[in-house]
């Protein structure tokens, strides 16, 4: 009997250790449900290396966006004008969901910590770049 219990515990331990880390680290902000993200800070950078702190409205970016990973789109919640971005790619890496896409002459990447919901995003253009930080929540 004791041998059976010991063997079962050993198997459970092996399964626990061998489990995929992504499954183990998956949080509530993994994109399975749509999220609402607020932008807290924006930096505007130019090719010379100089960056300046801005606000979302300064750079014509919405202060609050909805991230719908399943629907492969992001939309503006703070403005009456409809602004949407199509999500081209979705990746999961080390407990982060990474979204990317391209618009106009810019490419962008938005990263959300699946556990804490913190958001980081970059948008790169020709000789310019924006770095955004914020916090996501589940409505």
């Amino acid at each position: 009997m004791n041998r059976v219990v010991v063997l079962g515990l050993a198997v459970l331990g092996v399964l626990t250790v061998a489990a995929p880390p992504s499954v183990a680290a998956a949080g509530k902000y993994d994109g399975s449900a749509s999220m609402v993200c607020a932008v807290s800070s924006v930096s505007e950078c130019v090719a010379t290396g100089r960056c300046e702190l801005r606000t979302a409205s300064n750079v014509n970016f919405p202060g609050i966006i909805r991230v719908d990973v399943k629907g492969m789109k992001m939309s503006d919640l703070a403005s009456e004008k409809p602004r949407e971005s199509a999500i081209r790619n979705v990746d999961h890496a080390n407990g982060k969901v990474i979204l990317s896409g391209a618009e106009g002459e810019r490419g962008w990447i938005l990263l959300i910590n699946e556990t804490s919901g913190t958001m980081s995003a970059t948008a790169a253009g020709d000789g310019e770049g924006f770095v955004l930080f914020g916090q996501c929540a589940l409505p």
């Binding site: 300046e52 750079v59 602004r83 949407e84 618009e103």
Partner: peptide
């Protein structure tokens, strides 16, 4: 339609400077 009719979030960003 998504890209053209509504305008993108990042594509419409403007440099404050």
């Amino acid at each position: 339609a998504i890209g053209a009719a509504v305008g993108g979030l990042f594509g419409l960003m403007r440099r404050a400077r």
